[in-house]
């Protein structure tokens, strides 16, 4: 039942048309409108963009290549520490900092990808989890460099393009994060519509058959894992640069788990699902954890259980399914 649902879902959206649909344009105008409508919530806005970018990176490797990762925060943390350390030791230029973070995270992603793509689900799960925990321990022990559990402070950023300072108002950070998110999203959108993206979907649908038509499964998985790691690094770097602080929790398992929740909440394998899920998650978290942190965790767990039992495909998948059903009835 599940398999069939994904197969038809892919067919409906897999035709590689590069044209932007009206709904997509409306979607991207929302954050612009939010800037003017909610000027007091700009910091939360930046956080949502960062979470969205991070979820997007996981969507590429999990939604499109079906590699379950429990340690994706590793790359987020690497990016955050790279950008944070660069800025702390004098290189405060933001854009090159992002590029450096992406490069470092991608290299680590490439190196670990050889370990990850070898096994099956359970092995992958354990290996990604293990790599994440290893990095957490490493960052914890190397407290002279990373600040350990106290976090890395003293991150000072230069003006963006030499013009816009990262002030307390959060205006620069808002546009900076939104801009980076949009650029990376366009890249991902092109990527999944390219022949490379289609072969990834082929691997997702039938991993054993792909070699028969001349696709090197391992090489494709390594490539997408590396790209996903790099994008996660960018997200981490954005967080470090805009909050001017890197906490060790940016590497921790809870962050990887929250990320999975965001992606599943929105719906994996649509790109937009990652953004919708991240926004929903962050808004709910902002609202509910103000009431009580413990309650928040409870509702988080409950919603996850309910999502798996009743709403596979998340918000986007559910909406598409509903629309398809209505369209089916009409014809």
């Amino acid at each position: 039942m599940r398999r069939k649902a994904t197969a038809t879902g892919v067919r409906a959206s897999a035709l590689p048309t590069a044209r932007w649909r009206p709904l997509e344009i409306v979607f991207w105008l929302l954050p612009v409108a939010a800037y003017f409508l909610f000027p007091r919530y700009l910091t939360l806005g930046s956080q949502i963009f960062i979470a969205g970018l991070f979820a997007l990176s996981l969507d590429l490797i999990m939604g499109y290549a079906r590699i379950i990762s429990l340690g994706h925060a590793a790359f987020f943390g690497i990016g955050a520490y790279t950008a944070g350390l660069l800025a702390r030791y004098g290189w405060g230029e933001p854009v090159s900092g992002l590029a450096a973070a992406a490069a470092v995270a991608a290299v680590v992603g490439l190196l670990t990808s050889f370990l990850v793509v070898r096994g099956q689900d359970l092995t992958r799960l354990m290996v990604t989890l293990g790599i994440g925990l290893m990095l957490y321990e490493a960052a914890n022990q190397a407290s002279s460099i990373t600040g350990g559990v106290d976090g890395l402070s003293g991150v000072e950023m230069n003006k963006l393009f030499g013009l816009f300072a990262f002030g307390l108002s959060g205006k620069t950070a808002y546009w900076y994060c939104l801009g980076v998110l949009f650029i990376v999203f366009c890249f991902a959108r092109t990527l999944v519509r390219s022949p490379f993206g289609l072969s990834l979907r082929g691997i997702r649908e039938g991993e054993r058959r792909m070699p028969a038509i001349g696709v090197s499964v391992h090489r494709k998985l390594i490539a997408i894992y590396t790209i996903g790691a790099g994008i996660a690094g960018v997200a981490g770097a954005l967080l470090a640069q805009t909050t001017q602080f890197v906490g060790i929790d940016s590497l921790g398992f809870p962050r990887s788990a929250e990320l999975l929740i965001m992606l599943v909440l929105g719906g994996a394998g649509y790109l937009y699902g990652a953004l919708v899920g991240a926004a929903t998650f962050m808004l709910l978290q902002d609202y509910l954890s103000n009431l009580s942190a413990v309650y928040w965790q409870f509702w988080l767990g409950l919603s996850l259980v309910l999502l798996v039992l009743f709403a596979r495909g998340g918000l986007i998948g559910g909406t598409l399914g509903l629309r398809r059903r209505m369209m089916g009835k009409r014809t």
Binding site: A257, Q297, F298, L300, G301, V308
Partner: peptide, 20 residues
């Protein structure tokens, strides 16, 4: 269900048990 669903479901249970 897929392994991913099982992982998510059981992480949800973990969170609920911790909060409880």
């Amino acid at each position: 269900a897929t392994h991913l669903d099982q992982v998510l479901f059981s992480i949800g249970l973990v969170f609920m048990s911790i909060a409880g």
